[in-house]
Every structure is written in C-alpha cells, then in structure tokens.
C-alpha cells in the first residue's frame, strides 16, 4: 500500500482524487453507491452571492465521447448554502470544498468572505472560467489582468486554501496561471469546460437554449493533459488536473504531466463509483511500479 496522502497548498487530502464542481452535487447524491468520505476532496456545486435560476432547458447535449452543458450556475445563493446545505455536509469526513463564482469582483469577495467563516470548509475553488454565464465567470479567466485582480481581492479576505479554476478558452493558459499565482492563489485547477456547440440539422436549430455550452467528458482529455503539462512547468504552486478523467490510468497520466491531484467530473455521471476506483487504481499502479508515495509520480513524465 503506497502513500496516497496529498498536500495542495496546505490542504491535506487522503488521496489525490477529488470531484469536479457541478458534477457531484453536494456529495450526498452519491452516498448510496460509495462511502464518499473515501474521496480526497469533494468540490460542491458553484455558489454565487445571490440565488440563480440558471439557463432555460435544454441545457445538455450528448456529443461523441462527451457532453455539452449550459446549466449556468443554478444555485440558491451563498446564504442558503450556509443555512441549509452546510449543516448537512459539514461532518462528512473529507475535504468539502466550495466552488465560488460571481459576476463582479465584489460578488466573488463577498461570497468568499462568507465561506471563510465556515470552520469545516478548508478551501474554496474560485471559478473564473464558467462559459455559461453572460457576465463574469469566464471573462475574468481569459485576461491576465482581470484574473490577477479577482484573485488578489479574494486573497485579502480568504485565509484558507485558495484554488483557482482556469478556463481552457484562451490562447496561452500558462500566462493566466502565472497571473493567478502572482495574485496569491495556493493552487490552480484546470481545465474547466471548452466552449462548444451542437446543432439539430433537422430542425435547423441549436440544441442548447444558450446556443453554445461547455464541452466535457473523455473527448477533452488530450487538450486538458496538454494544458496541465504546460501550466505545471510554468507555476510553482500545485496544479490540480481535470478534463475527461474516466479511469485510474487517465488520472495517472495527469499526475505524470505535473498535476499534484485530479478532479473527476463527467465520468461520475456514467459510473457513480468511479472516484473510489480511480483512487484504488492509482494505489495499484504505485505498488506495481515500486513507488512508495504518489508524490513520486507527480511530474515524472520522461520527455
């Protein structure tokens, strides 16, 4: 049994396997299938300062080896989270991490400040990369200056582990990662979804109500892997890799490319037990190759 304990900017995890925001609800939805406390970290649904209804239906289109979504950050707002959801999930014995999103810097700061006060939330993931909201979100994540500003502002009010989730919808993701690191991020996670589109030819109409949406699933893995590799070479803070991870081998590829931990997203929809299988599979790989700790394979790609 190799050592799976992983450290992300001061956040200690039982293993490097986390769940991606928006694909795992608040964790409870999966508790019938597995012991969710065995997951390294659960990143809950994107939370905003105020209630958001999200985008109209249809919000999803299946694509070859993937899917497009246009949920648009539907959530009941941070106060509802604190009063109603936090009490239910705070004692789950793993890192419960809140994904924080907003339309303005003030929104991000106010939400992060409120989450900072919650004892059992050891980290936030700042979402500056949602492609499905008209204002904010991805706008912050596609420009170095705005990315750095929002992270600096949140850093001032947020004392615990600050992860920043990056958008792949940029020309040079390493530049954005460096800006975010300079702004005070403890870690970066990447990639959020890729902007895509689906068309119903018979009806001559877009499939999604918002025309465009975010692409995820196995089809995005090569892009995600390349970006994680580029970012891990550029920054000093730990990188969390995600994008199409559907097996332990996929996760190991991200670790080799330089990720310290991984998030599993769309694959949770196909196999609600995938997180545990990936953690076990990483352990099996480490044993088989004679590694004592998962940290030994982080960035161990030979090229």
């Amino acid at each position: 049994m190799a050592e799976l304990i992983t450290n992300i900017g001061g956040l200690r995890m039982k293993n490097p396997v986390m769940t991606a925001s928006g694909t795992y609800g608040y964790g409870e939805e999966f508790a019938d299938f597995i012991d969710i406390s065995k997951i390294g970290g659960i990143i809950v649904k994107g939370t905003t300062i105020a209630h958001r209804e999200g985008n109209p239906y249809p919000r999803m289109a299946e694509t070859p080896s993937g899917m497009l979504n246009a949920v648009g950050l539907q959530n009941k707002g941070v106060d509802y989270f604190i009063d109603n959801i936090y009490p239910r999930i705070k004692d789950i014995d793993t890192n419960m991490i809140v994904n924080v999103s907003g339309s303005t810097i003030d929104d991000y700061v106010a939400t992060a400040e409120k989450i900072n006060a919650l004892d059992k939330i050891p980290a936030i993931e700042l979402n500056i990369s949602c492609p499905n909201v008209k204002q904010g979100g991805m706008a912050f994540g596609t420009d170095c200056k705005s990315a750095q500003s929002v992270v600096e502002a949140v850093r001032k009010v947020y004392g615990k582990t600050l992860i920043v989730k990056l958008s792949p919808n940029v020309t040079n993701i390493a530049e954005i990662a460096l800006a975010v690191e300079a702004g005070g991020a403890d870690s970066v996670s990447l990639i959020n979804t890729l902007m895509g589109m689906a068309i119903n030819a018979e009806k001559r109409k877009p499939v999604l109500s918002t025309v465009t949406g975010g692409l995820s699933g196995a089809c995005v893995k090569p892009i995600a892997l390349r970006m994680v590799w580029q970012v891990a070479k550029a920054v000093k803070v730990p990188v969390i890799g995600l994008g199409g991870i559907s097996s332990a081998t996929d996760a190991i590829e991200f670790l080799l490319a330089g990720a310290t931990a991984v998030e599993i997203g769309t694959a949770n929809f196909i196999d609600p037990t995938i997180t545990i299988k990936v953690a076990e599979g990483i352990n099996e790989y480490l044993d088989r190759h004679g590694f004592k700790s998962v940290s030994e394979i982080v960035g161990a790609l030979e090229c």
């Binding site: 939805e29 649904k45 999803m60 979504n69 949770n268």
Partner: peptide
C-alpha cells in the same frame, strides 16, 4: 445526464 440530481441538466 446523471439521473441523480447532481448535474442540473
């Protein structure tokens, strides 16, 4: 997608 109330699609 998920069938479990997680993805909100």
């Amino acid at each position: 997608a998920c069938g479990l109330g997680a993805c909100l699609c």
